[in-house]
Design a protein around this nucleic acid. Structure first.
Ligand code: MN
Ligand code: MN
Ligand code: MN
Ligand code: MN
Lengths: 226, 226
DNA sequence: GATAAAATTTAGACTTGTCTAAAAAATGTT
DNA sequence: AACATTTTTTAGACAAGTCTAAATTTTATC
């Protein structure tokens, strides 16, 4: 009994994706204001959209209590994330874009409707497990393969060595800064010192010494090797 | 003095593209009803849109007299056609789609906004000159390279031999029929006979004899070799 | 040139997604 | 518990894109 596939608008898909991202692993409900900020819109617009998405059973919504994705809603979100990340791999691996240039284009491509397209793209790309920022790509059943545990650099001790496995993909400026200091996925990194008065870190990246603010370090994820 | 680049909606882009396609080489104006039929919408909706597009100077519109694209409008149309056809090449050459499967997906992909993306895609594909249906791909300056003259099969004499250079890409069913009889771009074709009572043709395709209705023959374009 | 038919536009309505301003509910503070 | 503040919802508006039904203009025909 194939559940009738609602067509979702780009706007609806963007809301679903945002709620999924804000939820993370927890299943606490997401507040209207938080979602409004994330979507760069007003709380009243969010309320309207939540009613509509609740009507379509993509999330549960209780007045004044925020929302939580349903199973269906989560699946929609995962499918969009899958598309976004596979397109990012395409842009970087095949079209030679930098990791700082792909997010905006992928924001558009993630809404292209065709299951066949994305499955063939995945095959064409050789079934990548992570996107250019190290984020895991769910398989066609929507499962994230077991990705080895990663720690934020800011949570590691002095003396920790590791390999860069992921970086936050929010801002192009941040990624361009990483380009400048030649930090990539796979770079070897060591925490040489932590300055207690401002929480900044002295780090050695592939042999080059530099300094990271706490905020910057929080956006880099490593797999510790010692 | 960079002319302020209006953002066009998908709907606006689809209208522009349709007007361009209906205009062909002639510069007669396109009537409201013709456009309405092409867009599968109502004449009243077309009127509204024409007013908007005229306001944006993408076309000239005179009440009761139809519309004509301006230079700017034509450039927009060509850029969309370019994107559509390059994406079709990608889908067929890289993702192994059949020529009957790509149109609908390309209808979505043609609206992705990024000049860099399409230029890099073109390079990745090796600067193809035609799409999977034999239609020419304009270069990044919007020029169609000189494509050798092609004739509709229906307009050729008995005894004409030629190479299939293009087919109409409107309907998947038509393209699937061509698959069935193994007619491809590059196939050698000869008109063995013309039946005067219904205008149908007896043709030989790569050595195999079959029969084409006049309507079907009109959708196949060859470069005559004799 | 008058009249009939066809094409086109206008008027008014509806949906989606957004906004501002005001009302209501929840939360925090004494 | 009462008041103040913050969060959230509601009410009413607007732009885009569409529709139906009615009015208008053009074109065809006698
Ligand atoms: Mn991204
Ligand atoms: Mn990413
Ligand atoms: Mn096509
Ligand atoms: Mn085509």
């Amino acid at each position: 009994m194939p559940r009738s596939q609602y067509h979702l608008t780009q706007s609806e898909e963007n809301y679903i994706k945002a709620i999924f991202a804000l939820s993370g692993s927890s299943d606490d409900s997401i507040s209207t204001n938080l979602l409004a900020e994330r979507m760069s819109t007003k709380a009243s617009s969010v309320t309207d959209m939540l009613k509509k998405l609740a009507e379509k059973e993509l999330l549960t919504y209780t007045k004044y209590q925020g929302c939580t994705l349903t199973e269906t809603g989560r699946n929609v979100a995962i499918s969009i994330v899958r598309k976004h990340r596979l397109w990012e791999v395409f842009l970087v691996d095949k079209l030679q874009f930098g990791w700082d240039e792909v997010h905006e284009i992928a924001e558009q491509l993630e809404h292209i409707q065709s299951a066949q397209l994305i499955n063939r793209l995945e095959e064409f790309l050789g079934f990548p497990k992570v996107d250019p920022h190290g984020d895991p790509i769910p398989n066609r059943e929507g499962k994230f393969e077991n990705i080895p545990a990663r720690s934020s650099l800011s949570s590691c001790e002095i003396g920790t060595k590791g390999i860069v496995m992921g970086v936050e993909d929010g801002s192009p400026e941040f990624l361009q800064y990483l380009n400048r200091i030649e930090l990539k996925l796979g770079s070897e990194i060591e925490i040489a010192d932590k300055l207690s008065f401002d929480g900044s870190l002295v780090v050695i990246i592939d042999g080059r010494t530099t300094q990271f603010s706490h905020l910057l370090a929080a956006k880099i994820f490593i797999q510790p090797t010692s």
